[in-house]
Nucleic acid binder design. Structure first.
Lengths: 349, 349
DNA sequence: GTTAGCACTCACCTTAACCGAGTGCTAATT
DNA sequence: AATTAGCACTCGGTTAAGGTGAGTGCTAAC
């Protein structure tokens, strides 16, 4: 059985309608609302074929059809056309994105909030993975007799800090000198790539300050061990409650729980190894509780390193064309901002 | 009509039962489950009195009774006896609270998570209000040609930082010197109390670096303007979905929305001006969407200044005795840890 | 190949009957 | 005078039956 033009059109109609209404779509509805020039009976026959081919499903023996995961997949792969964001939306994005964005963290937060607002789905992003980025500077700051704060600035203004306890606290000037020494040693090196040679140099250059050297190293170890992907942040999780798919509290609860234990989600997100945007439909997510959800992910990068993933979570019947266009223009925007940061840095060095 | 011993006992039975079951309580249930030595008929008469007095309510003309806000209020004021946390719980608290708590932020996060886990309600805390605290140190750190990070450490290891853009970036050594000058000038001063005299001194001592002086001042302004109360953080909001009170998704959604716009909640929390723990029952919260909720709040403090509020949000039928004991021992613990930090600082100066 | 027509299915809604937990009242008991 | 037993009554919630309508599959005509 061939998947001809007409069948595709009918499938598209079913998906479009189902995205809008979340109700099974019947043959008469299609005949009336979509001007295909064929009668409901013909559509019924075609639908019967589409069902046999696995693209649509009949939830109850005599109800309309809903798209199957496979149907969405076909739609996304063959039918979906990426459309650019409208001018008005673009304006909103630009004004929102250009405030208070010196630090990537804020930029991403803001972006996620914006995405969830524009789409009414849930936005997910992973913190920039710091271990792949180059160290810019390291500074020390004594807080009192025993507490020392180590501040690490990586490329792109990614800041990490840690407060540690020390037995012996050098005076301020010494700390400053130590920090310039450490910075000279480590500037430009990717955190993950710090090897034994650097460690050795560190200990010899920080001669007499072994304690501090070892604290630096354990901080850096901590950063480079950090699980391949940064912590996940969510925005607009409450939108989930608005989906009819989750009008049953139990289902919503179980999804929320799944979002809380982020590990499986982290795996999913880290699947996207840079490059294009990726779509997981229903069971393709590999997460039982998300069989009625889809996730669209993409990565954002700056400098030479992939830094993080950003995605949108919604019901399988999400408006893929909107989601795809919002997500891709968002990333374009973020990367624009980030590359500005980068450029500034290059001028610097 | 007098509120005698027996009526109190019946009220307590109703509340206890309702807390456990979330179902209206009938006279026979009480007669059977609670050994009051009187028949259901007598209990019925007494319940009729209690209803007249406003302590209980009959949701439907012929169902059992549920406690009214007033009833809970009486219970909380007269009957509730504060019990100490059990030994086992105490152990959990201690082990959890003693890791990774150098920075108040983490300590509070951890505490909130713990509270929501122990009670199955939602924990809320406000960030330490930085504007009432004394400045410890200020440091600068250049990130590149144009981006400068200002780091402010206040007492109790409260850290705030901001990245700003500058037109002219002094070299590292100069920045360091400037930061010691600024620190000398501002150390020990409460952020909010920085007046014109200090501003004048700042500009004169930072002669030639007006841009940096003004950036510092706008950062400090920002901190001291921050709305009387720090940002709110939540933990265990998903627990709300488990309350039968919110098995209707619409209700849950509206409560979540209310939690999102934090302003009214912030007001409520800031009501507690230090001292003892406060309980808001149902409409006492003054928030329409929370008429079926209660909030128990308390403040944590260290040094000489009140720093933040922490609270528990649950249905009006929450287990007040558990909540009260968990909350008060938590605060005891936090303050223990915080005062250790303080002591260290005192040794320092 | 397409369409009109028709019998059939089945989720969903409405209505009615029923059940049971609970009450209020009255009369008997202590 | 207080307590209790007994009883009629109320009313939310559950179940069962019937009706409705959107939708289907199939057949026969175009």
């Amino acid at each position: 059985m061939a998947l001809d033009e007409r069948k595709l059109k009918i499938l598209q109609a079913i998906i479009t309608d189902y995205i809008a209404t979340a109700e099974p779509v019947g043959s008469r509805t299609i005949a009336k609302k979509y001007d295909l020039g064929i009668s409901s009976a013909t559509i019924r026959n075609e639908m019967s074929d589409l069902e046999e081919m696995g693209f649509i499903i009949q939830p109850h023996a005599s109800s309309g059809r809903i798209p199957s995961d496979l149907g969405y997949r076909l739609y996304v792969d063959k039918i979906l056309r990426r459309q650019k964001l409208g001018d008005e939306d673009k304006k909103i994005v630009n004004t929102m994105i250009n405030r208070n964005v010196n630090q990537i963290q804020y930029l991403m937060d803001e972006t996620a909030r914006l995405i969830s607002k524009m789409t009414n789905y849930t936005a997910i992003f992973s913190e920039p993975v710091v271990k792949n980025t180059k160290i810019n500077k390291i500074r020390f700051m004594s807080l009192n007799d025993t507490d020392l704060m180590i501040i690490l600035a990586a490329e792109g203004n990614v800041i990490r800090n840690k407060i540690v306890s020390v037995n012996y606290m050098p005076d301020e000037d010494t700390l400053y000198k130590l920090s310039t020494v450490v910075t000279d040693l480590m500037h430009g090196i990717i955190i993950e790539n710090i090897g034994q040679d650097i460690v050795d140099k560190l200990y010899s250059e920080l001669n007499g300050y072994d304690e501090i050297a070892s604290l630096i190293m354990s901080f850096i170890d901590e950063l480079s061990k950090s699980s391949g992907m940064g912590k996940l942040h969510f925005s607009g999780t409450n939108n989930i409650l608005a989906f009819p798919e989750f009008s049953d509290v139990e289902k919503a609860k179980s999804l929320f729980k799944t979002l809380e234990k982020t590990d499986s989600l982290t795996n999913l997100l880290s699947d996207n190894k840079g490059g294009d945007l990726q779509i997981y439909i229903g069971n393709e997510t590999g997460i039982e509780e998300m069989k009625d959800c889809s996730i669209v992910t993409t990565t954002y990068e700056f400098g030479d390193n992939i830094t993080g993933t950003i995605g949108i979570l919604g019901p399988t019947r999400m408006d893929y064309s909107q989601v795809v266009s919002v997500l891709s223009s968002m990333v374009e925007n973020i990367e624009g901002v980030l590359n500005n940061l980068e450029d500034k840095k290059k001028d610097d060095s």
